Computed example of a mutant assay.
Amino acid sequence: MLMAHSAVLTGLLEEYEALTTLHAEDGSPETHRRFHDVCYTLCIATGTQDIDAALIAARHRLPGARLTDDSALPAIS
């Protein structure tokens, strides 16, 4: 499997976060389409089939990620 460069993953994660902050799901058709494009690209770049798995995989492939990183665990309130 091809591995995406960490700079590509960083850019995709930043764009995903920005679009999520802007509530792209409820935005204009163009913003909504870009949000889905970024989600799809993250899945392809990480070899996953859903955005949650793609986000986890992308974050673990970034420089400085630790094997014991608990970012995949649900937050406990």
Rank of each mutant, 00 (worst) to 15 (best):
P74W: 02
F35I: 01
D26I: 07
G64K: 10
R59I: 05
Y16A: 11
L19R: 04
H60W: 09
S6T: 11
A75E: 12
V8R: 15
A72L: 05
P63S: 09
A4M: 03
A57Y: 08
L73C: 06
Y40S: 04
V38T: 03
A72K: 00
A75N: 06
T46N: 14
T20P: 05
R34H: 15
P74N: 04
G64C: 03
S77N: 00
L67Q: 10
L2R: 03
F35H: 03
A58M: 12
A4G: 06
S77L: 04
L13R: 01
I51M: 07
L19G: 07
E17D: 10
C39M: 13
S6N: 12
L19P: 06
L62P: 08
I56W: 13
A53V: 09
I44L: 12
T48L: 05
D70A: 14
I51C: 09
R66I: 10
R61E: 02
A58T: 13
S77E: 09
T68S: 11
L12A: 04
L2G: 02
D50T: 08
H36V: 04
M3A: 10
D69P: 07
D26W: 01
D26N: 15
T20Y: 12
M1I: 04
A57K: 12
H23G: 07
I51S: 11
P63E: 06
L73F: 15
Q49P: 01
S28H: 12
L62H: 10
T68A: 11
R34A: 11
R66P: 04
I76E: 13
T20N: 09
L67Y: 08
A75T: 15
H5R: 09
A53C: 06
E30C: 08
L2K: 00
E25T: 07
A4Q: 00
L2V: 02
D37W: 00
V38H: 01
A72C: 04
T20E: 08
Y16P: 00
R33E: 08
D70T: 07
V8Q: 12
L67E: 09
S6W: 02
A4V: 04
L19I: 03
L13K: 09
S28R: 00
L19F: 09
H32N: 14
